[in-house]
């Protein structure tokens, strides 16, 4: 089974040289630590920045320089700043090659739910709906099952959707699955996990 960092490392291998990429909050943020050698990607932060750098050294934080998770960050030589309308113009306009984001549920048809639990958690979708509707490729990084062992890779989502039919690939702690016509296709199984275990933890239809 992969831990958080191993999932992030696996997601890092999705990156291609020259791509502009948006990383979501949580495990997707860790992907920035696992960009493969020789691969140059530019990270977009939807609050208005291309070319996101690492966290600042202590004492060098700038309140005017944060990422979409409101964390203090730094700029790089290629950094550009812009306003929120411009930021989402490039997202909606398909200029961002890939978004990597977290999920509460994913369905076999690529439906994604990651923003709301009715009656409980009211936080908002932020930029997630725009990202999944606009970017070239959507990769989800998530735990395959809930704390109670229930599958989060489902036949149909039960929670309000973030996007319909938007997910291309799922990277979970148990392996990698692609959304294909008719269901999900196993791409890879995590170390120490059997294909039977991956299948058992997946409620959605697996096609061969």
């Amino acid at each position: 089974m992969w831990d958080r960092n191993q999932m992030a490392e696996r997601a890092g291998r999705e990156l291609q040289d020259g791509w502009y990429v948006n990383l979501g909050i949580g495990i997707p943020t860790l992907v920035a630590n696992y960009i493969p050698e020789g691969v140059n990607v530019t990270l977009q932060s939807e609050n208005g920045m291309l070319g996101m750098g690492p966290f600042p050294f202590e004492g060098e934080e700038d309140p005017d320089l944060i990422n979409a998770g409101k964390q203090t960050i730094t700029e790089l030589p290629q950094t550009a700043y812009f306003d929120s309308a411009q930021s989402f113009a490039m997202i909606r306009g398909g200029k961002i090659a890939m978004a990597i984001l977290g999920a509460m549920e994913v369905a076999e048809n690529g439906d994604l739910a990651n923003w709301m639990i009715p009656g409980k958690l009211v936080k908002g979708m932020g930029g997630a709906m725009d990202l999944v509707a606009g970017v070239g490729r959507v990769v989800v990084v998530m735990d395959h099952t809930s704390k109670h062992g229930e599958s989060k890779v489902l036949k149909a989502c039960t929670l309000p959707l973030t996007g319909k039919g938007v997910v291309d690939r799922i990277i979970s702690n148990l392996g990698v699955l692609d959304v294909v016509p008719g269901g999900l296709k196993i791409v890879e199984v995590a170390e120490g996990v059997t294909e039977a275990e991956l299948r058992a933890a997946t409620e959605g239809t697996i096609v061969d």
Partner: peptide, 11 residues
């Protein structure tokens, strides 16, 4: 100019 989520790295 309050910082909501101060995040740093060690030198």
């Amino acid at each position: 100019k309050r910082i909501e989520n101060r995040t740093t790295r060690k030198k």
